[in-house]
Design a protein around this nucleic acid. Structure first.
Ligand SMILES: [Mn+2]
Ligand SMILES: [Mn+2]
Ligand SMILES: [Zn+2]
Ligand SMILES: [Zn+2]
Lengths: 137, 137
DNA sequence: TGTAAATTTGTATTGATTACATTTTATTAT
DNA sequence: ATAATAAAATGTAATCAATACAAATTTACA
């Protein structure tokens, strides 16, 4: 937990209790949760938790480049800690998001000349092995 | 217009007037419009147009692999005709979406073994040349 | 202590998208 | 033609994640 405080501080984020808990949840559940999933999970331990705080905190994490948002469809935004660049696969049947060990291609300077690129995301959609088997029997 | 009808038919879409107009708009304004932008543009010529019809038609186009949706943030879904694979750049200042001539990397079969991949999207975020200049003077 | 700043909370609002019943238009059979 | 049926389009209400914002609580520190 002390180490988590240090990580938050290293991103210029004051490690309040709520922020620590949200960071811990993201760190120890690498499941690309929605804001609501985070809220539901932490609510058990922090009954005073407000959903607004979850949103506020996630936005703070993103501002400070500690987290990133994964938007696969308009109904749910998911969150991930910033780490090694990797791609994401969303199963359109079970809605789970899987990490894919593929690097988003580094932007060719000629292709995006005069642009400032802050973020790159590589997204795949389809069926995960489990759901594929369920559908095709 | 006759050619547009044939294109729709080749995707198993019956070319009604509304569908033709929406297809035409997407074809002749390669600007990745929102459903509302399409509605606002066509409303002038088709005053009876309903926004639900725009959504219905776009969903039909997507079902039949004639169009695709680009979701860069949760407030607006944008639409694009399916064409040569290319990436998209969203300017976080002016909200415009630019085509980028970069191919989303073909999925390595070993990386997504046992997955069924239906769709790949490569997204960049940042500032376009115009907005960059406005911000930095 | 007391005061200001930072953080968290609760509630109301927003707005794009969907649900769905109704109406209109197109197609087919008689 | 006309009627019956199917397909397409419309209008309105509902949904629901996300935000706005003001109030309350906690923290920092003089
Ligand atoms: Mn991930
Ligand atoms: Mn495009
Ligand atoms: Zn699945
Ligand atoms: Zn711009």
């Amino acid at each position: 937990m002390q180490q988590y405080s240090d990580i938050l501080r290293s991103y210029d984020i004051k490690p309040s209790y709520t922020r620590l808990m949200i960071y811990q949840y993201l760190k120890e559940n690498q499941t690309h949760p929605t804001a609501d999933e985070i809220y539901q999970a932490l609510y058990k331990d922090i009954p005073t938790l407000s959903k607004t705080t979850v949103y506020n905190t996630l936005h703070l994490f993103i501002q400070n480049h500690l987290a990133t948002m994964i938007i696969m469809d308009q109904t749910e935004t998911r969150y991930d800690l910033v780490s090694e660049p990797h791609a994401h696969f969303k199963c359109m049947s079970c809605s789970k998001i899987f990490d894919v060990d593929v690097m988003p291609p580094k932007v060719d300077a000629r292709k995006l000349k005069d642009y400032i690129v802050n973020d790159a995301q590589l997204l795949y959609r389809g069926l995960c092995p489990k759901c594929k088997d369920n559908v095709t029997q």
